[in-house]
Design a protein around this nucleic acid. Structure first.
Lengths: 309, 309
DNA sequence: CTTTGGTAATAGTCTTACGCTATCGGCCAT
DNA sequence: ATGGCCGATAGCGTAAGACTATTACCAAAG
C-alpha cells in the first residue's frame, strides 16, 4: 500500500512489451533472456508501483487488461526513444549538433565554404555557427557557450587546446585614386605618414594594426573606428585613409573593381594565424582535429591563404 | 571495455536531466533528493554504459558535451513519456480504450445510443465496438479479443461473469397483406401452420424461434435463412413467411409504414435477455458495472424494452 | 475420476546495484 | 598561503533482481 508511485524501470517496460507480444510469461521470459519467475516478479512489481493490474493470468493464455494494453503501447514508445538515445552515443565523432564560435571578420567569408563542404562529407553533422567578438570568443568557449571556436591564435588559457589551420595575410587597401594604388605590392616603408583606419579594440586586428603603425611611423586614426570590415572599406573608398583587410574578406567582397585598390605585402610576415580551439577537458580531440582538417582543405582552395602551419 | 551496452536506467536519465539544468553535481543531487556522490556514480555509470562522455567536469562549472546535450534532450523526451505512462495508470475505471463485443442483432440498433450517452458522461472513454456472431462472442471474450461483451444471456463459461441488463421482446413480423396484420397483438396459437423465417443457427435467435415453432406447430423454413435482420424483413415483406424481430430492431428500422406489420406478444414471456459479460479474472468489475448501468439507462428510454432484471 | 502436461506463482539463496557518510584532491578567491 | 567550494574516491550496508527448485492451478486426455 505504498501511495508513492516510484518510476517503473526500463527493464520492466521491456518485459511488459515482451509479454504483450508473446502473451505467455514463459515465452516472454525466454525472449528477454531471463527465467520465468524473474519476469513474473518484475511484472508484479510494475503492477504494484503503477497500482493497476496489467495482465490477466487466468487459465490458458495471458490477456492484457485495457490499461495494460495502453501502458504497453506507451512502453514501446518509451523504449523506442531509449534506443534512439543509446544510438546517439554510438555515432562517429563528427555527428550531431556542434556549436562553432567564429570571429565576425572570418565568419561570413570562410564559413559558407566550410559549411558546404562539411554538409557533403559529414551529412550527420549539424553545425551551429555563432559569431562573437574575438575578445569574447575564448571566454565563451571556456564557459561552454561554444563547443569549438575558429579564432585568431594564440589562445591564452591553459584550459584550451588548439591547432593552427592557416595564415591569412593582411592586405593594404587604399582608395583607387591614392598614389599607392598603382602598385601591386607594398613595403612596410610605404606606410610612413599615412592615416590608417581599423576596427575597434575589441578585435585582434586593432592591436595588430596599431603595432604596425608604430613600427612604420604611420598614424592610427582613432576617431574613425569601423565596426565592420565593410565599413572600413567604405571609409577607405571615400579617402579617409588606408586600412588593412584580411585576405578572405578581400577575396569575398572586393572583386578588383570599385573604389578601393588592394596591395599584397611585398614580403611575407604580415598575417594573422587562424586556428581551431576547444576545451582540453572536452575529450573530443579526434572530432575537432577532423573539423580542422576540413577547414584546412577549404582554405587550400581559396586564394592568398598560406597553409604553412 | 564492456562492448555490450546495457540500457540506461530511468533513474540515470532523471539525474542527467537534473544535471543538465543545474550544471552542478551538488545542486542536481539536491534536486533529486540524493547525495552528490550517488549522482556522480550514476552519471559515471551512464557514461560507461553509453560509451561516451556526457559532461565535462573541469574547473568551475559543469559543461555538457555535444552528445551530452543531445542525450539529455532525448532523456527529457523519454521521461515525459514515462510520466504519461504512469499517468495512464492513475485514471478512473471507465477511461481509455475498451473493446466491446456485441451481437449484430443488437449492435446497430442499441450501440449508437449507448455510445452517445457514454461520450457525454465519460469523455475519457474510447469505446471500440466490434460486432461478432453470438456463437463466437463468448469464446472471443475468453480469448481476450473483447474486454466486455453485450450479449444474450446466459453466458455459459464459469470464467465469465455477467449482469442482466434488460429483456428485449421478440415481435412478430408479417407481410402487411397477411391476415394477422390487422391484429395489434398475437397469441402463440396464432402461429399454428405458419411458415416462419429466421437467421442462421449461428445466432441465438435461430434456436429460440426453432423451439417456438415446435411448440406451436409452425414450420421453420430452413431453405431461407437470412443473414441479417434487414434481409429477414425484406423476405417477410415479399410474403415468404413470417418472422420474429427483436424489439430494438423494430424500433430502429421498422417505422410503422412499409410492407410489414409488427405484432406485440399478447402475454409476456417471449423475449431475450440481454446482459453484459466479462472475464471474472479481469478484475474490472467496477468499470463493467458502471458500463452496464449506462446501457440500462439508455434502454430505459427506448420503447418496448423491459427492465425487470 | 484420475492423470498428465501445460501454465504462473512461491520459496530460498546469491550477486549486484545503489544509496549513504567520510574523505580526498583541485581550483579560485580571499 | 589558505579557506571555501567543487567533484571524485573509498568503504560499507541495504535492497533490488537474478537464479534454481518447488508448488499450485487448470485443462485436456486416459
Amino acid at each position: 500500500m505504498n501511495g508513492m508511485p516510484s518510476d517503473p524501470t526500463i527493464r520492466q517496460l521491456r518485459y511488459l512489451t515482451a509479454l504483450a507480444s508473446c502473451l505467455s510469461f514463459r515465452k516472454a521470459a525466454e525472449r528477454c533472456g531471463i527465467s520465468q519467475p524473474s519476469l513474473s516478479a518484475q511484472l508484479k512489481a510494475l503492477e504494484t508501483s503503477l497500482g493497476v493490474r496489467l495482465a490477466e493470468r487466468g487459465s490458458g493464455s495471458v490477456v492484457l487488461t485495457p490499461v495494460g494494453r495502453e501502458v504497453a503501447a506507451t512502453a514501446i514508445d518509451v523504449l523506442d526513444r531509449v534506443d534512439a538515445l543509446v544510438g546517439l552515443a554510438s555515432r562517429g565523432p563528427l555527428t550531431g549538433v556542434l556549436r562553432l564560435g567564429v570571429k565576425p571578420t572570418l565568419g561570413p567569408y570562410l564559413m559558407p565554404h566550410v559549411v558546404r563542404r562539411l554538409h557533403a562529407t559529414h551529412p550527420d553533422l549539424r553545425l551551429f555557427v555563432r559569431e562573437a567578438p574575438p575578445i569574447d570568443l575564448e571566454r565563451e568557449l571556456i564557459e561552454g557557450v561554444h563547443d569549438v571556436v575558429l579564432a585568431q591564435l594564440p589562445l591564452a588559457s591553459a584550459e584550451v587546446e588548439s591547432v593552427r589551420l592557416f595564415r591569412e595575410p593582411l592586405l593594404l587597401a587604399v582608395a583607387s585614386d591614392h598614389p599607392l594604388a598603382r602598385q601591386e605590392r607594398f613595403d612596410p616603408g610605404d606606410l610612413k605618414g599615412l592615416d590608417v583606419l581599423t576596427l575597434s579594440p575589441r578585435y585582434h586586428l586593432h592591436e595588430q594594426v596599431l603595432r604596425l603603425c608604430e613600427e612604420n611611423e604611420a598614424t592610427l586614426r582613432r576617431d574613425y573606428e569601423g565596426t565592420s570590415l565593410d565599413a572600413l572599406r567604405q571609409m577607405v573608398g571615400m579617402g579617409l585613409g588606408v586600412t588593412f583587410l584580411p585576405a578572405l574578406y578581400v577575396a569575398s567582397e572586393v572583386r578588383g573593381e570599385g573604389d578601393v585598390a588592394v596591395l599584397k605585402p611585398a614580403r611575407a610576415g604580415l598575417h594573422r594565424s587562424i586556428g581551431l580551439g576547444w576545451r582540453r577537458a572536452s575529450g573530443n580531440h579526434e572530432a575537432y582535429e577532423a573539423l580542422g582538417d576540413a577547414v584546412t582543405a577549404v582554405a587550400a582552395e581559396l586564394p592568398h591563404l598560406s597553409l604553412e602551419r
